[in-house]
Design a protein around this nucleic acid. Structure first.
Lengths: 207, 207
DNA sequence: CATAGTTTTGACCATATGGTCAGAAAATTA
DNA sequence: TAATTTTCTGACCATATGGTCAAAACTATG
């Protein structure tokens, strides 16, 4: 079996191969979705034979589950960092910036998530209704407290968060479209987006 | 063959069956993406046997292509209606409203499009780089003229349009997530969104 | 280096899936 | 109603795909 004895951790080979498989799988799943992806594609991309992949993972489902679990760990992080330390408007704009940076630096993760949610989130519905909702409610309350204190304009906190998710993830999920429309100016899309979004959210929030 | 003689149009049966197949196919493709969908699913949902489906359409690909072609016809319509007739801010907000209404009334079409673009738009890349880019450039120029005339605040027109697409389509494409987060208040999501987006874009655009 | 443990593979299997086809059933027309 | 055309189906096929397994190849260690 691939699982090493409980006392020792995974061997070097196990770590390397497991990582190579997950790396290739992320690429494939993010591009074609769960059902559209095949073990043969992952095998080809990782350079690891299909039976060997199944030596390290129980099956296609398990690989996908592992990727999603990893993703969810880091996905909520930017929002968690939203605190009442600094100026509310700056705080929210900083969150927008972090989220946009994630679209730039981890577009595959964004697409993996988008594919999953778009298809009804069959494998992560519990996470959405649980941890995600809990965190969103908590941060919405924080935003509401800022509104009550007159520090930002009165808007619906939940929908503000939705709009931030939508506008930032758009640059990863709809990248092909963004590039097609911007064509020659596409290279600067993230800098342009950063400036536009900063302007928009400052205008929206500044009292 | 299913194709009627060139002189006569399609028969009643042809119209009905073709429509039933496309209706079922839209449902299936929007939910599972192209590769994730099967003819058997479409057959089951439409109540038309697989061989009979293939009597009306050349194959899976053709059905999908037909749906995309139809979609693109109507997809750009809301943006085309953006004119310099009324007040610029009202015009843009009206466009946001139309786009949000499409997410509410045609969520499957939105998801079909999202699935396609998310996976690299292999079948509609030409449409994006052609008609979509042309229209977007034209309307960006209109928005820029409003900026030059001092009628709205100076923002990047292309990214304004992206943000409108993102925020409105989010309510169709990420519906599961929106509902999970709003839970008991989910029923009113479109009214809430309409109000929030109107507020945000007025704040962003009003000079 | 010999042995025990780990990793890798080729061959293979069962099922799913897109698609074909000859002929039956139904509808239309003469 | 008989002939003709359109619509529909069961049986079938080729390929793709997730997964299995026995044995080979490799690695680490006493």
């Amino acid at each position: 079996m691939a699982r090493a004895a409980s006392t020792k951790g995974p061997t070097r080979i196990q770590r390397e191969k497991t990582e190579a498989i997950l790396e290739a799988a992320l690429e494939v799943f993010a591009t074609y979705g769960y059902r559209g992806s095949t073990l043969d594609q992952i095998a080809a991309k990782s350079g690891i034979s299909k039976p060997n992949i199944l030596y390290y993972f129980d099956g296609k489902e398990t690989i996908h589950a592992k990727l999603l679990a990893r993703l969810l760990e880091t996905w909520l992080e930017p929002l968690e960092h939203l605190s009442d330390a600094g100026d509310p408007v700056d705080e929210i704009c900083a969150y927008v910036g972090r989220k946009l940076a994630m679209s730039r630096d981890y577009p595959r993760e964004s697409r993996l998530f988008a594919n999953e949610v778009l298809q009804g989130a069959p494998r992560i519905l519990d996470e959405l209704a649980g941890p995600l909702k809990t965190l969103t409610d908590k941060k919405s309350a924080l935003i509401q407290s800022w509104i009550n204190a007159g520090k930002i304009k009165a808007i619906d906190p939940h929908h503000l968060i939705f709009s931030i998710w939508a506008t930032t993830q758009h640059y990863a999920d709809f990248d092909v479209q963004v590039r097609a429309v911007l064509s020659d100016k596409a290279d600067a899309r993230f800098e342009q987006a950063a400036e536009f979004l900063d302007t928009m959210y400052r205008a929206t929030l500044t009292p």
